[in-house]
Design a binder for these strands. Structure first.
Lengths: 225, 225
DNA sequence: ACCTGAACACCGTTCAAGT
DNA sequence: ACCTGAACACCGTTCAAGT
């Protein structure tokens, strides 16, 4: 069972799929060349024939995730906002399902075809919504920056609390432990509500805020035109 | 000059300050117990007397950064939105000045006094803006989630492009390299504008979008009341 | 009580050697 | 052309030994 011993011929595609599978099946442990080699039935160093280093490999895997989320958004029904939401939440789901990839920092700009495909989708939907020029670029920046960095945060959260449900329901704030909240009256007043916030709540709140503002900007620019 | 050889008595405070200094002076290399020990004139393993592991140490250092940003926001003039912006941009600056700390993933919830202080500030300012109940908690979630994850993304960007200006002016998108943009008409149409986006532009776009939406929600809840 | 230093189990990466 | 395996330089962490 598990992954091991396929012994197919290696190439970039096969390796990336191996990384994704490893990340899915073993969500709480880091991606390692050794573990990847075992899963593919190949020596740990064989990957260097196909990727310059680990960063490039992780980049390629993340790019695949982003591309898959973009496909989901592109094929979804609904108006521009609804399809954007499908893309954004699919990316969050995929990040939670592959935490060891999505959390591997240092990669905001996967720079592969999946990444560009997602950028194109975001721009297409925002244009459909009526945005153009500087407002379009700003909305694009807010959305693409948010989705990647917040997806990484979600994934890190899922990795560090191993064994816990991978649906984003992990509390965002662990606890206030020994800290005396007397000096922090607002935190004290809302402590129960704050502790009840999950990682996915945070993601959802961010998406809603950004898309509300975007929708507003779109309405304004249509009214002006 | 440089860090080395102080040989003071160790304690949590001294170690955290050492980490922050190391991160400031040597922004493109990772924090290491060995390097930290050299800077403090102490064996690499001496830190284990004061912190359970590296994660706890990094957490404490990040907590200090967040606390400093909260102090800046608390002491700033202006209305709630302006003071929130001071906090958010100060946090981005501090992340860029200490990239090896801010980028050290796995830490969304520093869970220390600085973190709680920042939470209290955010809640205070949002309350001042007229938010309460569920709308308050949602706005808090969007803002705190955004600031931490986007700050980490900014820091990772600063670390990977070593030597480049630490002011967030690094391009968000590297280049489109060899990729044929023929299949991506929207990216193609806006490629120059996209390549001109900096990391700080992305941060600013996110802050503006979230605060616009928050301001709108505050106006609504005041009108209803 | 606090720090040292050897030791351990792992990393990513390089490179000569195999097939 | 592609993969192996030894080797290297580094990690975080543990623990017995020093002072």
């Amino acid at each position: 069972m598990a992954a091991g011993n396929k012994r197919v011929r290696l190439d970039q595609q096969v390796i990336v799929e191996g990384v994704l599978e490893l990340a899915r099946m073993d969500p709480s442990s880091r991606i390692t060349f050794k573990r990847l080699g075992e899963a593919l039935g190949v020596d740990a160093t064989a990957m260097y024939r196909h990727f310059r280093n680990k960063d490039e490999l992780t980049r390629a895997a993340l790019d695949r995730l982003i591309g898959a989320a973009a496909d989901a958004g592109r094929n979804a029904p609904g108006n521009w906002r609804e399809r954007l939401e499908v893309f954004l939440f699919r990316l969050a789901e995929l990040s939670l399902e592959h935490p060891s990839i999505a959390s591997e920092g240092a990669i905001i700009d996967a720079a592969g075809p999946g990444d560009i495909s997602a950028d194109d989708l975001i721009l297409e939907l925002l244009t459909e919504g009526g945005l153009e020029g500087a407002a379009l670029i700003k909305a694009y920046a807010a959305i693409s920056g948010f989705s990647l960095s917040q997806g990484a945060a979600l994934a890190q959260e899922a990795m560090s609390s191993e064994g816990v449900a991978r649906d984003g329901s992990i509390p965002w704030i662990g606890s206030y432990g020994a800290t005396n909240l007397a000096d922090y009256p607002h935190v004290y007043a809302h402590r129960d509500a704050l502790l009840a916030i999950s990682g996915m709540d945070v993601y959802r709140a961010g998406v809603t805020a950004i898309l509300d503002a975007t929708e507003r900007a779109a309405e304004d620019s249509i009214r002006i035109a």
